[in-house]
Design a protein around this nucleic acid. Structure first.
Lengths: 231, 231
DNA sequence: TGACATTAGTGACCGTTTGTTACTAATTCG
DNA sequence: CGAATTAGTAACAAACGGTCACTAATGTCA
């Protein structure tokens, strides 16, 4: 058997600088937007993701919640890890490692803090290379998991119309969906239930409001899908 | 507008101890197995995941590759992040934060280093709470992404029979699949191509060997699926 | 040698799902 | 009022997917 290096498991851990970078996503003006914070004067880029180092004994999601609350005024209800980043890319705080965390907030969330602004994902200002990578990964994660977790519903108010829901799916997937197919699949899934309220949005027929209320899942898993590969 | 705490973006990053914990998965004896390392004498648990702190300017996947190579003798070809862990749970090296990384190796990989052993996922020895969580998350990630990335093929040799492939899918999904449906879907996906070799495995008709050779993707994405929610 | 067990691979039936078109319903605007 | 606009549904045809039944090629064993 060939020579092997000594097992790394005995070495001591090094001290590293760690940042939690939060990607707050929300649908704004027919595009998915991310909330950025104005960088302090003198910084090389003018905008950054909201970020901070996690505090002692603070979970990563707890840190993300605290960071998001500082810029939003309220904590988002949904977080998901987007990955860890430690390539040599530059970070605003020169952190060795970033944990990217996606936070989703509905379109009608409170006005954000001063010195913050929403930017559509396809019109971002210059960010540090690390933050650029975090945002791209976060968007990819959101798109990838949209049909595995109730992610789309976290981008909507507690009650919403089916057209609202379809729009969010179209934003996330980046392609138009057919109304009849979309509704038929949704009905079959028992994920939403109608309320007895209706919303009249200017012209056109008023739409019934629904709420997210997933019923018990039908165990009937179907066959393997080979057509969903993304790489 | 209500009072808000000062923006965290100005605070300095703290120093944190960081570990990369690697979950090497491989199909062994009709079960998915993880490679564990015998802990040094005196440790509270007798087995740990292979882990180490990342070196200076070393990417996380690079660290995972180095750690896996130390126990396997060769670097796995496939890595995927399973998440970051920073709850208060105990880690063998008392790292504040763990990055869990899944590595996949084919069943016929080289013999592992001394002081290592394969354990089926459903018969693990006692691990530190942190490592237990990392393994569980890693297994969940592998299962979740099996039909989004060519993960199953990384658990097989470069050439394999269609029955081999189906077995891996069944291991990952934890349920039996129907042969005819599985093959029909696979053929339609243009993910594999036949070689002109055959394998005779004791009794029964010899099986043709295939290799993973994904063809150009058909742009035709289909509708939304609401029946894949896992939470 | 020949019957049988075992594994590989395919054809076909048929109920379900899904893309699509086309319709009806309820509202605002002019 | 009629046109425009948005919501919601029925129904058809094609594709998909679960299942059964069959053929094919090998080893085992009487």
């Amino acid at each position: 058997m060939r020579e092997r290096s000594s097992t790394p498991m005995k070495s001591a851990v090094r001290r590293t600088t760690l940042a939690v970078d939060v990607v707050v996503l929300s649908p704004r003006a027919d595009a998915l937007a991310v909330l950025l914070v104005r960088a302090p004067p003198g910084a090389r880029e003018r905008w950054t993701l909201p970020w901070d180092a996690p505090r002692l004994d603070e979970g990563l999601e707890d840190a993300a919640s605290r960071i998001a609350e500082a810029v939003l005024g309220a904590a988002p209800a949904f977080f998901e890890q987007a990955g860890a980043f430690s390539d040599g890319k530059r970070h605003p705080g020169d952190a060795d490692v970033s944990i990217g965390i996606v936070a989703l907030v509905p379109a009608r969330a409170e006005a954000p803090a001063a010195d913050t602004e929403w930017f559509p994902l396809d019109a971002l200002p210059t960010l540090t290379p690390r933050h650029r990578a975090v945002v791209e990964r976060a968007a990819a994660v959101a798109r990838q998991r949209v049909d595995q977790s109730p992610l789309a519903f976290r981008l909507l108010s507690p009650t919403f119309t089916l057209s609202d829901l379809q729009s969010v799916y179209e934003l996330l997937l980046g392609r138009p969906l057919h109304k009849a197919s979309f509704r038929r699949a949704l009905q079959a899934s028992y994920l939403v239930e109608p309320t007895d309220e209706w919303r009249s949005e200017g012209r056109g027929r008023p739409a019934q409001l629904f709420r997210f209320a997933p019923r018990k899942r039908r165990g009937a898993r179907r066959g393997v899908r080979f057509d969903l590969f993304t790489e």
